[in-house]
């Protein structure tokens, strides 16, 4: 797999919007990479739905703990990318 197919902040933004919309007063296009998901208005169920969509789209399986451990976009992106680079290439 090439580096360009890895999971980026823009990918996460798009999937968050599809999965759970955006909180009023929150600018998802802003500098959010180190902002807690709770501060962005996403509770555990929103993250569960987001995680499910990431799994479907990227063909990976995230541990249940991955979504509770990742409190910011940066940490979730790192977990997803670790999975993607570990996945055996087809």
């Amino acid at each position: 797999m090439s580096a360009t197919s890895l999971f980026t902040l823009d990918d996460l933004r798009r999937i968050l919007l599809e999965a759970a919309g955006a909180e009023e007063g929150v600018d998802l296009s802003g500098d959010i990479i180190d902002t807690d998901f709770t501060a962005l208005g996403y509770e555990s169920l929103a993250l569960l739905e987001t995680g499910g969509r990431i799994e479907r789209e990227y063909g990976i399986a995230l541990d249940d703990s991955a979504l509770t451990d990742a409190v910011t976009p940066r940490s979730l992106i790192e977990i997803v990318n670790a999975q993607l680079s570990a996945a055996p290439s087809a």
Binding site: L17, A20, G21, A22, E23
Partner: peptide, 8 residues
Amino acid sequence: LPSRLLPQ
């Protein structure tokens, strides 16, 4: 309604 509420 806010977009946050629509998918749920």
